[in-house]
């Protein structure tokens, strides 16, 4: 894995005095590591958003980009399934008003216009640098309720592909990925790949303290990281 470009993203954020990466930066690191992410553009104004949406093609997703907001959905900074220009304009205005109301001091860097990906099974993959044991990777199910359910497993990095599969098998929600109640069997190999890549990123990229994909949407074939965040330090 070539980490020089990833480190450049981290350094640039640090030079701006930031302690986190914004979503498109975190996703760029994932993309560079070959974890699949949805197609996206950043728009500074509504005209730019229309153009980006045309290039991607509706339906699209609109998200707030702000280094001050780590959990976007808590300030309604995510709008899914926007079908046309009229809806985009409406959602854009609502989002700006809501943020102005909830977090008036937040710095808004722009808006993310992103390809709307199909529904699939959702998992979380996180990686942190532990002060005692060094790089550690986490796998879990439970989506937004992951902190409540704590249905997760951990391994020290680096790890083998076999360990990545063990991590999946250790969580209670594992059957959700293997055809529970008639569902399709999901691409476990793609999850293992993402776990290994995350372990490698946290191990090798200087200045990165935590990075997280939540969720990674997993299909019968392939998986896409639809949201990501990273903490510097």
């Amino acid at each position: 894995m070539d980490t020089s470009q990833m480190e450049r993203i981290v350094k640039e954020a640090v030079s701006l005095g930031r302690t986190t990466l914004v979503e498109p930066e975190a996703k760029e690191i994932l993309r560079l590591s070959t974890v699949q992410v949805p197609r996206f553009f950043i728009a500074k104004d509504v005209v730019g958003a229309f153009e980006a949406a045309e290039r991607i093609g509706y339906p699209i997703v609109l998200k707030l980009v702000s280094p001050d907001i780590i959990h976007k959905s808590e300030v309604r900074g995510v709008s899914l399934g926007i079908m046309n220009k009229r809806e985009l304009e409406q959602m854009w205005s609502e989002m700006i008003l809501c943020v102005a109301d909830e977090m008036p001091t937040a710095l808004i860097e722009g808006f993310l216009i992103e390809e709307m990906v199909p529904v699939g099974a959702e998992v979380i993959i996180g990686a942190i640098k532990d002060p005692q044991f060094g790089p550690v990777v986490m796998f879990g199910t439970g989506g937004a309720a992951v902190e409540l359910m704590k249905d997760v497993s951990f391994r020290l990095a680096p790890l083998t592909r076999e360990e990545a599969f063990e991590m999946m098998g250790e969580v209670k929600g594992f059957p959700l990925l293997t055809g529970y109640r008639g569902g399709a069997v999901k691409d476990l190999g793609a999850i293992a790949d993402a776990i290994m890549k995350m372990a490698e990123i946290i191990e090798k990229v200087d200045g990165l303290k935590e990075i997280e994909i939540n969720p990674l949407i997993v299909y019968e074939k392939g998986a896409v990281a639809v949201d990501a965040r990273a903490i510097l330090g």
Partner: peptide, 25 residues
Amino acid sequence: GVLAARSHTGAIAGRYEIYRAAFRK
């Protein structure tokens, strides 16, 4: 956890979970 618990991972990764991972390893 001693990490700035700003990601879910950081919030869940209490000290013990990491020790357990270390024991496994």
